[in-house]
Amino acid sequence: MSIKFKVLLRKNPQDILAPEKFYAAAIADGETDLEKLAELISYQCTVTEADCYAVLMSLEHNIISELNEGRIVKLGRLGNFQVGLSSEGKETAEEVTSSVIKKNRILFRPGKKLRTLLSTLTYRKAS
């Protein structure tokens, strides 16, 4: 298997005045939702599909709850989730308040097996 990519003409976000260049962009080849993951997992063990789905839904609920409390969620070999943010720079520490936060996001740091996957991928240009 290989990852499909397409070619896109884009501006350089570091220098928007620079001429546009062509870049490769990955193309998703479908999607897998929690129901499909539950089905796949149930075929690989003795747990029913419904039980797998219930556990995955509970996992999602608890990841959200723990991130909301500001905690890092460590999922063992899978990786870690954490809230990250970007803010405006200020001259003094006292000037830094929640009002200078510009953007927030969920950070995911993959575990070793997921990082290794990236070094084994092959790519093919979509036709």
Rank of each mutant, 00 (worst) to 15 (best):
L17D: 13
L37G: 05
E31L: 11
L9P: 00
L56Y: 03
D29Q: 14
L78F: 15
L67E: 04
E35A: 08
L56V: 03
D51Y: 02
K4A: 09
T120I: 08
K74L: 07
T122A: 12
V83Q: 04
L78H: 12
K11R: 15
K102Y: 03
T32M: 14
L8T: 08
K125E: 13
L37H: 06
N62M: 11
A26F: 04
T97Q: 08
S65A: 14
S86N: 13
F81L: 02
N80Q: 14
V73H: 08
I16M: 09
S119E: 15
H61W: 04
Y43V: 02
R124G: 02
G111K: 10
R115K: 15
S2K: 01
N12Y: 03
M1K: 09
I3H: 04
E91C: 03
V73M: 04
E31P: 00
S98R: 13
A28T: 04
E94L: 13
I106V: 15
Y123N: 07
S127Y: 01
H61V: 04
L114I: 13
G70L: 09
A25N: 13
S98C: 10
K74W: 05
L107T: 07
A50P: 00
A38V: 10
L121D: 05
A50S: 03
V47K: 01
G84N: 06
A50K: 07
L9K: 13
A24D: 00
Y53L: 12
I41M: 14
M57H: 09
Y23S: 09
I3R: 05
L117V: 11
T97P: 12
L8A: 07
V96Q: 13
A54M: 00
N104M: 10
L78W: 15
